[in-house]
Amino acid sequence: MRFLNFILVAIAGGILIYSTVDMPPWADPSSPASVHVSPRYIEKTLEETATPNVVTSVLADYRGYDTLGETTVIFTAGMCCILLLRRVSKR
């Protein structure tokens, strides 16, 4: 069983490594990820949100809805732990 799992993992890893051939080189400034969407965040952040930390402005404004979801994930986790572990004693 373990051996089978190992083979499975090896195959998955092999496929993933194989696909890196077509990836843009590491740290390439002209890779699609660096030129398509993200430049606007860096260039317009001060103008549009007055926030120098680009990560904060993207996190809380451009993609603020993601962050709402993310906070909800935390909230969900908290509620889950309470639901699972906490026994509210009957008063």
Partner: peptide, 10 residues
């Protein structure tokens, strides 16, 4: 690029 950072914070 800040976008992956944002995604990864999440």
């Amino acid at each position: 690029n800040p976008l992956p950072h944002v995604l990864m914070l999440t």
